[in-house]
């Protein structure tokens, strides 16, 4: 017999975060690094950013932490995000702590 059931996920909140649109082309782009505060993350991120810059003919122009009292378990300060959004086309960071 057919039954109907509710989906368990519920709606997204009105202000739920959305992924930024994909940049049309990275060639010659400015790259930023956002340190997520985990041990060795900065070393890895800078190395990856430099490798990417070499491949696309771009430049690493910003390396920054998340802001005052920022660490792996906290979100980035709005000021840092605002600065990065003006200075770079692409940011490399770590998504977990």
């Amino acid at each position: 017999m057919t039954i109907r059931i509710h989906a368990p996920v519920g709606p997204l909140a009105d202000d739920s975060p959305q992924l930024a649109p994909v940049a049309p082309a990275l060639s010659g782009g400015r790259i930023g690094v956002l340190d997520n505060g985990k041990p060795n993350a900065l070393v890895l991120l800078i190395r990856a950013a430099e490798g990417l810059a070499e491949r696309i003919g771009g430049r690493v122009v910003a390396v920054t932490a998340k802001g005052p009292r920022g660490n792996a378990a906290t979100t980035c300060s709005p000021q840092v995000l605002a600065t990065l959004s003006k200075e770079v086309e692409l940011v490399l960071t770590g998504s977990a702590d």
């Binding site: 509710h6 989906a7 368990p8 996920v9 519920g10 709606p11 997204l12 909140a13 009105d14 202000d15 739920s16 975060p17």
Partner: peptide
Amino acid sequence: EVIAVLPPRGGAATRRAIAVNAVL
């Protein structure tokens, strides 16, 4: 009624969504 918005998905934990998971 939205009880909380839960990260990372940004899902709205409505009373209905909570009830669905309670039943599950």
